[in-house]
Amino acid sequence: MAQLPYIAAIDAGIHQEMRRDPSVLYFGQNLATTENHEFVAAYGHDRVRVTPISETAEIGMAIGAAMAGFRPVVELYMAEFMLVAMDQVLNEAPKFRYMSGGQVKVPLVLKAGFGFACGWAGQHTGSLTALFMGVPGLKVVVPSTAADAKGLMATSIRDDNPVVFMHHYLLTLEHGEVPDGEHLVPFGQAAIRRTGGDVTLVATGWMVNRALAAAEALAKEGIQAEVIDPRTVAPLDLDTILKSVAKTGRLVVVDQAPRHATVGGIIAADVVEHGFESLRAPIIQVNARDTTVPYSEPLEAYVIPDEARICAAVRKVCKTAR
């Protein structure tokens, strides 16, 4: 085990796979501009390349290279940059296998940072995860710890499908224990970050930390929250969530996106459909307020879900429980 920052753990996952599999490619903007760049030095220019600011071509070329037998990882930096190329992300990559009747596979990773709520204003702060999770053919990964960042990146690269790898920018320098050597985290297995019997909190990305902080505060009031981090939202480990709700009878979903664009809303709908009899109180969603993320610091803090709002939601479901 080594203490690594989240961002270095992602790189460790890419290194792990590039070392073992010569078909893994890594390319994107502002990457590998000099010969001594660590990935160029290790794997050469055939496999590691800088691109112009051409998201449609980058993602489209990843699709073509994938269909031709390679496993490209596209460095997109900001999740919003995928919006420039949404046809390739939503309408090309996830559909070629299907439309060809299973003749091709499209193993690629779209590595994109998101949620940079630290003064980046309206266009670099979005939490777009839910936008991708409903697209058949895409897998969507949201690591919240350094260990998962490495292990989920490695699994993303080995997966035979297009994977949107959403790393949270506010976790960039968060350190954590990361297993040395080969490390893989399976898709579709949620992590229970904290156990508790009174309420289930489900959160992804940076919101996992906020949910955990809220859980600690609530424990002082005698409320024990179970905090679940799905880790991958497509596939989604609904079973772990349903089992927890069966135990607690209460669910609060926390999501950094505005109300109608959340992973949490989809989880809430699934729990209502499949776990209604377990629920002792209405589900509450704690989301970003319905607005563009503002620049000014207090306004930004007001918009993004915080510990106080999570705690208030938990107190409410505990009070209204049947």
Binding site: G60, M61, G64, M67, A68, F70
Partner: peptide
Amino acid sequence: GAGIPHAAGAAWAAQI
């Protein structure tokens, strides 16, 4: 136009 970058990606594979 969507297939144009796909072709270039396959060409990158061929180049490698």
